[in-house]
Every structure is written in C-alpha cells, then in structure tokens.
C-alpha cells in the first residue's frame, strides 16, 4: 500500500479502536435486534420487510465499519466489498425486475 512505501522497515502501526467504541457498537446492534423483532409485530403494510432490511443493512454497516475495521482500512478493501455488494444488488434487482415484469405484463406467474 502506498502509505507504507516511505519507510520500508516500518512496523505496522494500526489504528487501535478504543474499547468504548466496540461497546457502543455492540449496544447499537442489540437495540437494532430488539427494534427488528418489535417492528415485525406491527402491521406496516408493505413496509415490514423494507424496514427489517433497512435495520439489517445498518447493523451490517456497523459491524463492517468498526468490528471489521473497514472505516480505518485502505480504500482497496472498500472496492472489493463494494464490488461484491454491487453484483449482489445486480443479481437481486435483475431477477426481481424479471419477476415483476412477468406480473405486470401478464405473462403469467414465473412460478407456474
């Protein structure tokens, strides 16, 4: 990585995340779990699943940023994670669009 190139004999000097940050992230994850379960008992119409996924994405973001240190890591790691998320979205949205297309264009249910 370029930032280490200046001194070839440098030892890694990592960004050490304070323990307090880990505890805060842990508490946020626990609260997020409680909110997910509570929200599932509410009738939010079509919004139940989007709300659950929004909370899950937020929780995943916290784990990735702090527990997995991505916030303090080289941008190269971000690109790899971003590429995977991009292609996962492509997979889900592509198949989802095909599914919806069948419904709206009255081509019959793709499941039958």
């Amino acid at each position: 990585m370029p930032e280490h190139a200046a001194d070839p004999h440098a030892e890694p000097h990592d960004h050490v995340v304070p323990v307090g940050t880990y505890i805060l992230v842990f508490l946020a994850l626990m609260v997020g779990t409680a909110v997910t379960v509570a929200a599932s008992y509410l009738d939010l119409g079509i919004w139940n699943t989007p709300v659950a996924m929004l909370i899950a994405v937020t929780k995943a973001g916290l784990v990735v940023s702090f527990f997995m240190h991505l916030k303090y890591s080289p941008r190269l790691y971000w690109i790899w994670l971003g590429a995977a998320v991009f292609f996962l979205a492509h997979l889900l949205l592509g198949t989802g669009a095909d599914f919806l297309g069948h419904l709206f264009l009255n081509l019959g249910s793709p499941g039958t």
């Binding site: 997910t36 009738d43 659950a52 899950a56």
Partner: peptide, 12 residues
Amino acid sequence: LFPLLYLIPHHA
C-alpha cells in the same frame, strides 16, 4: 437471515 426467515409478517 434472522428477519428474512423468522419474521415474515402474516399481513401484507
């Protein structure tokens, strides 16, 4: 997996 599998609402 937890909300996707365990928490599918009956309504909607």
